[in-house]
Design a protein around this nucleic acid. Structure first.
Lengths: 206, 206, 206, 206
DNA sequence: ACACCCGGGACAGCCCGTTTGT
DNA sequence: ACAAACGGGCTGTCCCGGGTGT
């Protein structure tokens, strides 16, 4: 999915399209979809409005969808890294929460999961964004589920537990951000790790 | 906090201010803060713009804050009811998730937690909304924590577990809404109940 | 219909709405509907865009419709004056063409019948403008028909002849404007007068 | 004038330039000049914008002028056919009106004389279009005048009568289109025929 | 000569949240 | 409490020209 990064990140300056997607992703993380204006995007990316509409004929929504995919890939990288770092599955899940907390704190809690707010904002209008958000959330769940299965958890409970883990992470991120406090993420990470440990203990197979 | 309801809910038609708050709350649940326009609010409430600025001199943000408090009280009612219905604490937590799922499904997943999206949208601007959202989320956590303590869990772990429960609920609501599927909420409810049960088993005192 | 002119033209400065209608009518005569921008209108009228949308919530089309009515009334005045000036009906019809020619020439053939171009432009979109144009053209025909009936022509032929007269005037105005030459209007006026005279001769009653 | 048709209409697919002109003519008939966008044209013709500017370096106006000539030729064909069908000159003139009515009604009154609206729209700007329109209208008048002269009318009155006839046709087309009703065209055709008959009777030479 | 992708400014019509006279 | 006005902002489209290949 995120192959473009390695393919052309060699040296050439990011293309107009690339810059649009990147800047939009950054703005979405910070402000959400509704509060991010087209003008703001083109100003940040240093391109003209016409260029935007050349690359994204359906306008803001199409661009935001691309930006969501981009941001989703970056978040997937974060998840993958955290999940791979710890040898035991419970620790891996907790690492996700802790890394996320560190990441958010580093930006002063202004940036955040770009999918959460955009998805919620796009419930009524913007069906394309809603679908895209859904797919991205699914990807993340599968990423987590795969890690859990590699720890010996059966496929079905692994999927359900991954859903729980992602729910916990997303909800805790909300609480942490509004409080500007990493505690909710850390606490949630600990409990999620416990759940994973319990599941492994219950299913000793693998 | 929600004392106004008993004070004047006797019979008289809802005041202008009341109608504004109620309609705004409804719109916030459905569309979030940014997508809800002043004109839309006054049209829905059947009042003039000037009346709005008479009652809420600080405009949209102040009105939205009042609406958040109103909506937060209603959600607290839902929590209280669910927590009180089940005799055992784990069941009570699961009931929260299930009630929430039923509630959201009944509106076609269009309505939702009014605080989540508004809080996320108001991170960059609208500090009043951010503070208000934070207070409301705190209230909910305390509501849950109180129920957990009454089940014999110590004060400190009860608070932490309540944080985990609320995180799970909020995150699962996000997942359920974007997928238009109650499964994430049910699954999360089950796991949260397990955590509560484990905590009770671990702390037999009380 | 055009009672407002006498009612308040006494002294007070024209209201915002009045200025909008007047300036729009002037611009429509000169440029047509499509070439006249909202910004141009508000600049000419010295009002803000928001004021425009306060008085004409449906925007450009609604404003243009009002302007058409206004301009139609003014053109009806011209017709009435010309029709009343000459004692004989044929001369009255010719006077219409001549007055129209004089009027158009006085503006360097830049102004013209505001209805013609707007009606043609609004065929595909802007149904409100189309209806309004149709009504105005009907009014003018009736004005002419009434004059013909007062000259002894029966009701039915008077209506048909009025249709012919208006067609001739509108078409000749087109030819005169693109050629910047009053001849087509004068020529057409002469032939129209002949038709009226023939009709009177054929129907000696009255 | 319309030599291109015979020259290359043999079999080969219409050239890029040809397609541009044809599609533009069709759009001008329906929407006028201002409402027809460059993008709309290139989409309809299936060519790229650069191709358009290659063939018509002066852009939209030059293309529209070519389209006007093309459409004018087609309308001239209609006039010629109608004028030649009827043996007597009055009947020939009436046939023009009737054929025009049939033609317009067949398109649901959406298409129309492409010159009228474009000419009126181009009065203020687009002098090239104005000149082109003028020439085309002149051609049509001469077409009619020639037919009248062949019926024994002197050169000078034939030219004037042709002016009257074209005025009547154009004006009646306007009235018919806005009313979506062929009656104005039919009525006008009848009266125009009467004028021609009277002229022939007055000038019995030939 | 011809066609492609891409970009450039300016402006289209419209609506935002807000304030003022009164 | 009301209509009226404010000024800036919104998304989107206008018509057009460069750079590149062929």
């Amino acid at each position: 999915v995120s192959r473009s990064s390695s393919a052309q990140a060699a040296a050439q300056p990011p293309s107009t399209r690339e810059r649009l997607v990147r800047e939009t992703a950054a703005l979405l993380e910070r402000q959400g979809y509704q509060a991010t204006g087209i003008k703001e995007i083109v100003r940040a990316a240093g391109v003209t409005t016409s260029s935007l509409y050349h690359h994204f004929p359906h306008g803001k929504e199409e661009l935001a969808a691309s930006a969501l995919v981009h941001a989703g890939d970056r978040f997937a990288d974060l998840l993958r890294a955290a999940l791979a770092r710890e040898a035991d599955a419970p620790g891996a899940v907790a690492a996700c929460a802790d890394d996320l907390a560190a990441d958010l704190a580093a930006t002063g809690w202004s940036d955040g999961c770009p999918v959460a707010v955009t998805a919620l904002e796009s419930m009524s209008d913007a069906p394309l964004l809603r679908e895209t958000s859904g797919r991205i959330l699914q990807e993340w769940q599968e990423l987590i589920a795969t890690r859990l299965r590699s720890a010996g958890i059966d496929s079905r409970p692994a999927a359900e537990l991954a859903c729980m883990v992602l729910s916990g992470l997303e909800g805790a991120e909300l609480l942490s951000r509004v409080a500007a406090d990493p505690t909710p993420l850390h606490t949630t990470g600990r409990y999620l790790a416990r759940l994973v440990a319990a599941e492994i203990a219950a299913a000793p197979a693998g």
